[in-house]
Every structure is written in structure tokens, then in C-alpha cells.
Design a protein around this nucleic acid. Structure first.
Lengths: 346, 346
DNA sequence: GGATTTCTTGCATTCGAATGCATATTGTGC
DNA sequence: GCACAATATGCATTCGAATGCAAGAAATCC
């Protein structure tokens, strides 16, 4: 077999231009180039023009890595999300990246398969010296302590830790749960059931607890609670469990999120022959897209994602600008979205 | 008003330890420390122990920024996604980040609101000297040329460019579309309609074109095509349009994605009183979660997301390791997922 | 016009880890 | 125990931009 000539790489892949290249071409010093790319720096108009012309000519872009090293500011934030498959999070993530983009910050994304991955994931984050972190995942108090020890600002999204000072942006779970319970009660429901989230989900527990308390204040007790995991399948399973209860199914089911509500609704109708809202009322929480689909038309609490992500970003940025400022919890009220999945009176 | 004492920042936020700190504590040189954190380097066992002990003691972690600067390897890849609200992408994104994580690579996420944002977004990416890019968004040939000029590996996910050499991982759209058409035809459907994706979506066009060609080969012509935008609402709208057609609605509707199929299905049933599959057969494409929900039970083509993301990651990594290797297009066959939304015979 | 202030600019150093080269140490063979 | 090889280590430099300091240029004032 004859030897073949190995063709050279198609392009020489000229390494990126540096400020020295630009400086050389423009006949000025490297520091001058650097200053031209920093606004507020002391540069004469003439200098700026010359440098910018040279920079454009060679296609120079400042190296963010080198800049980060000296300024100790990476302009990177990490976003931690526990399960992206939860229909609610993609919207949050899209909003977050858009808003961070707008303030010149790049997003490093980390998804956690299991909550236990948090420690490992944090180890991956530290070396990159991110300026801050948004966590839509469960972190332990120890984790939080590590953030403050390192001086890395942290903002929780729809979670927080009891008894630990943290920044957090939340939807008012209690208020939402009460609204839902009240509306169902006012429309005549008396036999309630709750499909809760997993016990390690703070918002899930809050929604459940608030609903139970509100029911109790209305004189309704011994409400059955089924634990789900926020998935469609667990909504379906919950419906089956509720159908098998002594005394028959409830007439109102409060679910800890929309997807379980949808699962339950589907199961009650398809598997068990019930009609909603005639035979059973079902409500959810979040206001995800599919909740508005004609087959479901769910009564739910729509979280104000825009305003919440807005708050999360500005909260994080302000802590980045002024390290050590006091922690803050910002709570937003969700909006009742009334559909035909429940007999409801607000 | 009296002046108040400004309390000092709660913690002094000791700046992160450096390799020099470790070296000093261990009584060795900085280079020794550096070598201990690089496997394959020539370090004695005794040295490694001493250094690791000192490192653990002060809580040292290598600074990835500094490392990137000297090695010219950021271990960062950018993932571009056009619309995260498309139900199909969150799963892709989660898989991608998990797989990149596994090979020690971090993901910078960029979401594009409008396709026109691509140029701007690329400008945000270059300064970070990412090692590579995965694009699930439309890029122009000029954009692609810029990648190769810069020597930055690029892998398209479910898109490509005609006549331009690019790396790409795709689901076999034609094959899937043919499968769907054949099954519908075999079950007796003769009056077809197509709900297509937007014209600037390559996969959408492929699915449509392949379906039309297959229909033609079966002797079915003049098939009405409605253009949608992949949203639920556009599926609903398409159903309305089809209902208003001369000669009544079709008996089989091939939709370019699941969400439009779901929208159409909902609309046909709820708004127009048709039953599926008795009166009308509807099929989708993607195999997203909601396609399997009881209310829909869609017949669709499930894209092998696991294998596709796997391929995308390894394709990108191999081009990072060996710059300039030849471009490759890897096509995966989707799997027919048969549901009750259509009369179907495979 | 000369003195003084205000801008501009360049020089030299810094950020923190990696690495080629030279030197020191250890190990091997006889 | 000696010569030589193999391995370990340190020194000095590098990556690319930012910045304190000092010197030079321009603007201001009287």
C-alpha cells in the first residue's frame, strides 16, 4: 500500500488575536488596547479610533478567560436544576438565561439526576469561580454554609431552608393552596383528598400543609394524603389509590403540581369512568402549558415566572455587586387560573 | 440622624487557595503541586502524598480559569437551543449536560428567542473560547464558516445545511414519515392532510416532503398542507382550517411534531366533535412525554434521544481531541410508537 | 508665556496554573 | 562501589488582559 499524503488541516486555525497583536498593528501599547475595551477608562478619542480600527481589522475579541483571571470576575453563573423533565422548569431556565444574557452574564447549566448529586456537582462548579449560583434544587445547610464561606452568592428558586439565612425567590405556596381549597369548598366540595409532592420537596410540603390547614379551618379533617413524585404516572397511581378508598372517591382532589393533576384527571376519566368537574374536581399548581390544553383545562395557580426569574436575577446580581449584603426572601403571589377541571367558586 | 456603623462583611471571604499556598505549606515548588493534580505526570509517591495532604488541609481546588488560559482548553462547550419551550428539547438538554458532565466538560447554555439572535449569541460565545458547540438552532452557512475559520468544532443536533460540510446528529425524518404514512394507508386512510412545521425548520420540511413523496408513491396526490409553528395553538388552528375545507375533513392527519398533533387532536374532538381514531387518524413525531398521556395516546415516531445525545457528545469530543477530522453525519432511526390516536397497521 | 492642573499613555507587574529544560535524586546493573 | 539510566524536582517562562504608578502631552489659568 502506498503512503498517502496526510492533507494539512483545511485551515491553519490561526490562533485568536490577542491585545498584543492589536497593539502592534496600531503601534500602541497593550495597555492602551485593554483600556479601549473598557468603558470609563481614560482614552483619547484618537487612540480609541486607531485601536478599534486595528481590532476590527484583525478580528480581535478580548479573551474572557484571561480577563476573568485578573479581574476575579468570571461573568459566569451556575444554574442548578434538579429535574428538567418537570414541565415547569424549562420555562424557568429559558427566562433565566435570557435575563442573564441581557446583563452580560453567561450561564453554566448543571442538571441533577438525583438530589444526592448536589455535592458532586458543587465540586464541579467551584473550579470555575462562578460569580454566583441559582439553585432550583435541594441543597443542605452544609452546602449553603460552604457558599457563604466561599463568598459565592446563592439564590434559591422556589425553595429555601428553614432557620438558615439564604436568598430566595418563591411563589407563595400557602396563599395558592388556600385559594384553591377555598374555591373548591365554596363550590360545594366536602370530601377532599390531597396528592402531595415528595416529602423532600419543600414547596410540595408547603402546598400540602397549607391546604390541610385551610381545610381544617373550614371544619374538614382526616383528609387523605397520597404522596406522589410530581410525575404523570404518580398522578395516575394516586387516582387508583383514591378510587379504592373506603367510602368511595373524594369529590375534590388538590394536587401539588399540574402534571400529577393531569395524570389523576386522565386516570379518573379513562380508567375509572368519572367525569370532571361533575363527579370530581381536580386542581393543580404551576400553570404549565399543558394545563391549558383543551383536554384538561385545569384550574391551577399560575406562578409568575417572568417576575420570579426577574427577581432571582436581580437579587443575584446585587449580591455579586455588593458582597455580603443581607439575605432576602422575595415571595410572589400566584394567579388563579380557572378552568373546567373543577367546580370552583372564587 | 446619627451615623451608623457599617458592619463589616460577615465573613472575610478568604480568597481561594492557590497552588502557591499549597506549595508553601508542603514545602515544595508550585510546579510540583501542579503536577500532582495532573495524572500521568512524573511525581513520586511521597511527593503526591505530601501535596495532597497540604491541599486537603487548606481546601485547595485548581482554578479552572487559570488552567484554561495556559492550556488553551476551557473544558467548556456551548449548547445553543432555539426554543426550550418546545417540549422535545428539555429532555435533550438534560441528556446532553449529563453526558458532558461525565466526560468532565461544562455546559454553557444559550437560548435563542428568535432565530435572528444567532449572530449576537455567537458574539457572546467566542470570548469564552469554548472547546466546541452543539447547535439545536438554525445557523447560516456564514455562521458555519466562522466556526471552521476559528477551528471551533460544531455539531448540529437535528439539523444540517445542504451543501455545507458539517457534523450533525439527526433522527431519520424521512424514514419516520414514511412509516407513519404507510401505516395509515395500510389501515385504510385515503384522504390525507399534513400539518407541517415552519418553512425555516429543516426537519419540518423533511418530514413534510417525505410524507408527500410517500403518499404520491401510493397514488395519493393534492394533499393539503397547513403550515404550523410547532405549537399547540397552531395544531388547533390547523384543525379548524381542515374542518373548513371543501369536501370535509381528511381521515388522516400527519403532523410534524407531537405538540401540534395534540393540539389538532384536542381541537378535532372538542371543537369539532370528531372521534379519533374512528372519524380521523392523527399521528405526530418526536415521542415527547405528553404523547403517551391517556388523553392522547399518540401514534408517533419516538426519537432515540439517548443515543442521539450520546452520538452528539462523542462526535463533538472527538473533534475536540483531533481538530480537523472529517465531518460526519450520524442518522438514527426513530422508533414507531403505536397509540390509539390513529387507525394504523404496521 | 510660564506655571499648574488634567488627561493620556506606557511600563512593569499581576492573576494562577502548566510546562520545557536543567539539575538533583534515586535506582539499576555489573 | 562505580557508571549510567531513569525518575523527580525546581526554575523560569508562558498564557492574555488589567491596572497602579510615573512620565509625557495637552489643556487651563493668570
Amino acid at each position: 500500500m502506498g503512503t498517502r499524503f496526510q492533507p494539512k488541516a483545511a485551515t491553519p486555525h490561526a490562533r485568536p488575536m490577542t491585545s498584543y497583536d492589536v497593539a502592534h498593528l496600531a503601534g500602541v501599547s497593550q495597555s492602551a488596547v485593554s483600556r479601549c475595551f473598557k468603558d470609563g477608562a481614560s482614552v483619547s478619542k484618537k487612540m480609541r479610533e486607531r485601536v478599534m480600527k486595528a481590532a476590527a481589522e484583525v478580528g480581535y475579541e478580548p479573551n474572557a478567560i484571561a480577563r476573568s483571571l485578573i479581574t476575579r470576575r468570571s461573568n459566569l453563573v451556575a444554574v442548578l436544576i434538579s429535574n428538567l423533565t418537570n414541565l415547569y422548569y424549562p420555562e424557568v431556565l429559558a427566562e433565566l438565561t435570557a435575563r442573564f444574557s441581557a446583563v452580560g452574564v453567561r450561564v453554566l447549566l448543571f442538571t441533577l439526576q438525583r438530589e444526592a448529586d448536589a455535592s458532586n456537582t458543587l465540586q464541579l462548579i467551584w473550579p470555575y469561580r462562578v460569580d454566583g449560583v441559582i439553585a432550583a434544587a435541594e441543597l443542605s445547610p452544609d452546602h449553603v454554609a460552604e457558599f457563604s464561606r466561599r463568598g459565592v452568592p446563592l439564590v434559591f428558586y422556589n425553595r429555601y431552608l428553614n432557620g438558615v439565612a439564604v436568598n430566595s425567590v418563591c411563589c407563595d405556596q400557602e396563599d395558592g393552596a388556600r385559594l384553591l381549597v377555598d374555591g373548591l369548598y365554596a363550590a360545594g366540595s366536602r370530601r377532599f383528598a390531597i396528592v402531595a409532592g415528595p416529602v423532600d420537596s419543600i414547596v410540595g410540603v408547603e402546598r400540602k400543609t397549607a391546604a390541610l390547614e385551610q381545610l381544617e379551618s373550614l371544619g374538614i379533617e382526616d383528609v387523605p394524603v397520597i404522596e406522589g413524585d410530581y410525575s404523570y404516572a404518580s398522578g395516575v397511581a394516586a387516582a387508583a389509590t383514591l378510587m379504592a378508598m373506603d367510602g368511595g372517591p373524594p369529590d375534590a382532589v388538590v394536587c401539588a403540581n399540574d402534571v400529577m393533576a393531569i395524570g389523576a384527571l386522565d386516570a379518573f376519566r379513562t380508567d375509572h369512568g368519572l367525569r370532571a368537574p361533575e363527579d370530581i374536581s381536580i386542581v393543580g399548581f404551576d400553570g404549565v402549558g399543558p394545563a391549558s390544553w383543551r383536554s384538561y383545562d385545569l384550574t391551577t395557580i399560575r406562578q409568575p415566572v417572568r417576575r420570579m426569574t426577574d427577581a432571582a436575577v436581580s437579587l443575584l446580581m446585587s449580591h455579586i455587586e455588593e458582597p455580603g449584603s443581607a439575605c432576602e426572601k422575595r415571595v410572589f403571589t400566584g394567579q388563579l387560573q380557572s378552568g373546567s377541571s373543577a367546580r370552583f367558586k372564587s
